[in-house]
Simulated assay, not measured.
Amino acid sequence: MTTQRSTTTLWRPTGPEELDLVRELDWRAWPPRLPEQPIFYPVLNEDYAIRIARDWNVKHSGVGFVTRFEVETEFLSRYPVQQVGGQTILELWVPAEELDEFNSHIIGRIQVVHEFR
């Protein structure tokens, strides 16, 4: 008998460069952070991800994407939810040095669910 793991849906607004790296990783992992990026921050709701992709990524890169992916819920419990604005401005802060382990708990593939230009 196979036991299904409980997962949590996360979103990540991203630009074209990061999305190209995700594609190179077969849509199964996030690339390592750059030295000036000490935190990987997926967000907890789609609306917040849309606002970042549309209002920030498009302005800086000409295009913004929203991705959706599933992570094992039990694993995520180590990262407290960060409220960085209003009630729906919620993120998880994953230290860059833990990103490989975080990636190993992604279930399935990372999907692009919105694109803004």
Rank of each mutant, 00 (worst) to 15 (best):
I52P: 01
W56V: 09
D47W: 14
Q82Y: 14
V81Q: 10
V58T: 13
G15F: 09
H114N: 13
Y48F: 15
T67D: 03
Y48L: 04
F40K: 00
N103F: 07
R68G: 02
R12T: 02
T67N: 09
E46I: 00
E115D: 03
P35L: 01
T67I: 02
L19W: 15
E72Y: 08
R109S: 12
F65P: 11
F40D: 00
A49S: 13
L44W: 07
W93Y: 13
H105E: 08
W11V: 02
T14A: 00
N103L: 09
P38Q: 12
R117H: 15
H105P: 06
G85A: 09
R51E: 10
F116E: 04
G86Y: 09
D47E: 13
R28H: 11
Q37F: 11
R33N: 13
E115S: 13
Q111V: 00
E72G: 03
V112T: 15
R78F: 05
W30K: 04
V66R: 01
H60F: 11
K59Y: 13
F40W: 05
A53C: 08
F102L: 10
W93S: 08
F40N: 02
F40A: 00
I39H: 01
L21S: 12
I52D: 00
R54N: 11
P95S: 03
Q37N: 14
I106P: 10
G108E: 14
Q111M: 03
N45I: 03
A96L: 07
L90T: 14
E91N: 14
N103R: 10
F116W: 07
R51F: 09
E70C: 04
T67C: 09
V66F: 00
R23W: 12
V113Q: 08
V22C: 00
F116L: 01
E74P: 07
N57W: 01
T14M: 02
G15S: 07
I89T: 15
I50E: 09
